[in-house]
Each structure stands twice: as structure tokens, then as C-alpha cells.
Simulated assay, not measured.
Amino acid sequence: MTAIYRRELLSYVTTPTAYVFVAVFLFSIGLFTFQVGGFFEARRADLSAFFAFHPWIFMVFLPAVSMRLWAEEARSGAIELLMTLPAPTWALVLGKFLAAWTVAAAALLMTIPLWISVNILGSPDNAAIFTAYIASLLMAGAYLAIGSMMSALTPAQIVAFVLAVLVSFLLTALGLPLVLDFFSGILGGGVSEALARFSIMHHFDAAQRGVVEFRSVFYFVSLIALCLGFNALAVDARRGG
């Protein structure tokens, strides 16, 4: 797994992919935080305007990072060589996923100066901010796992990207009040609440408030494990063929 992780991470740092992602992510999150979120107008020493846009930005940019994980291997024919390596399928899947997750973690780390700035301007709840960062990292892992799974299902990167964005959007939008009210009116409040528990937004919102909920951590870890499990099954199907 370590060798796969290093190989994949090296492919990120030796190509423009990681640098473009980090640059566009930092620009986008800055634009939404300050221009759309009204960071300064709120006159509050917190990062709520910053974290509020993470699900929507991750939903688009992280599938762009993960779409190449398996689709590019299939397109270039390198997957045939990869399948002959004396490594179990789970090691291949996990190594690639962790490399992509490292890129996402690096992008998040580059926003730390914003956290420092908030502390200079006021006295924020740093425990809540730290919790939100951890939740954001877990959420990034969930979106990447979805993208990796889709990448393993098709050799076309664009198709993998579109499928990953679609699934990510559905899982995110389930937590929107508008969507929940719609289902509540048709199926009842109980069904609406049950659907909300499957929403990425629902679990991330709790972390934004500084609330550490075991069920939210379990949700993200389970979603990552489930998607990577299907990812491994898709790779095994190629191997068996």
C-alpha cells in the first residue's frame, strides 16, 4: 500500500493536477467566504462563513481530483501492469485514495492563515473551529471515496466526474431544508428525518457548531468504507477478467 501511495502522490506533485486544484480551491473558498458569505460584514470572530461553503466546493472540485485515479489507468493501459503487482486489491484502492486525501488535506492546511487572522481580530471558539476542520477533512474523504468508486467503474474521466458530482450532489442536497420540507409534505416528517440522516450536509452542519457527534463520525467513516469497498469490487472484476 505504501508503494502505491507514494507512486500516486508523486503523480500528483509532478503534474499540474494538485497545484491547479489547490490554487482554484483557495481562490474559490476565499471568494465565497469574503464576497458571498459576508465575512467582514458579519462582524463575528468565527469561520462559519468559511465552512458553510465547503460541501458545495468539495462536491465539484474533489471529483475532479479523484476522477483520474482509476479511469486514467484504464485509458492509458497502465491498469494492466497495476493488476499484476503482488499487492491485494484493498492495498491498491487504499493507497490511491489516501494519496488523493493527502492533496485535499494539504489544501485545507493552506487555509490555516485565515484561522490565525480570526484569532488576531477577536476571540473565536478555537475548539469549534478545530472540530469543523476535522469534519471538513472527513467530508473531503467521503467525496473522494465517491469519486474513486466512480473512476473505477468507467474508463472515461469525464463520465466518472459527472457521476461523482451527481451522487455527491444528491447526498448533499438531502440535508437542505427545502428538500426536507418537500419530502416531509409527501412522505411525512418521519421519512424526512430518516432521509436527513443520510445527508452529508446534515452531519457536517453539526460539526460546524462545534458539536462532536459519534454518529456523524461513524457516517463519514462508513460512507468512505462503503465506497472504497465497491471500488475494490470493481477493481477485482477487472482483475478477474
Rank of each mutant, 00 (worst) to 15 (best):
Ser151Val: 01
Arg215Ala: 09
Leu69Tyr: 07
Gly95Ile: 09
Leu187Thr: 06
Gln208Phe: 00
Trp56Gly: 14
Ser192Leu: 10
Glu213Arg: 15
Val60Asn: 03
Pro55Arg: 09
Gly30Trp: 10
Arg197Gln: 15
Phe183Val: 14
Pro177Ser: 04
Leu171Ser: 11
Tyr219Ala: 11
Val36Arg: 11
Leu31Arg: 03
Thr84Gly: 07
Ala152Thr: 06
Leu174Pro: 00
Phe53Trp: 13
Pro16Asn: 00
Val217Gln: 08
Ile79His: 05
Gly241Ala: 14
Thr154Ser: 15
Tyr5Val: 13
Leu163Gly: 08
Pro113Cys: 04
Gln157Gly: 12
Tyr5Gln: 06
Gly175Thr: 06
Leu98Met: 12
Val212Ala: 13
Leu98Ala: 10
Leu92His: 00
Arg209His: 03
Phe51Ile: 10
Phe39His: 14
Val165Lys: 03
Asp125Gln: 08
Ala127Asn: 07
Leu138His: 01
Phe39Ala: 11
Ser28Arg: 02
Ala194Thr: 15
Phe220Glu: 01
Leu187Val: 05
Pro88Arg: 10
Leu223Asp: 01
Ser117Ala: 15
Phe34Gly: 10
Leu108Met: 14
Met59Tyr: 00
Ala232Tyr: 09
Leu138Val: 09
Phe61Met: 15
Thr102Met: 02
Phe161Glu: 03
Gly175Tyr: 05
Glu8Thr: 15
Ile224Leu: 08
Ala145Phe: 00
Leu69Ile: 15
Phe218Leu: 15
His203Thr: 05
Leu166His: 02
Gly229Met: 10
Leu26Ser: 07
Ala100Asp: 05
Leu82Glu: 05
Val191Arg: 04
Met201Phe: 09
Tyr12Val: 02
Gly189Cys: 06
Thr84Lys: 05
Trp115Arg: 08
Phe214Gln: 11
Leu26Gly: 07
Leu137Arg: 00
Val212Asn: 03
Gly30Ser: 08
Ala128Glu: 02
Ala78Val: 08
Gly241Tyr: 09
Ile120Ser: 06
Leu92Met: 11
Pro177Glu: 08
Ala160Gly: 13
Ile129Leu: 13
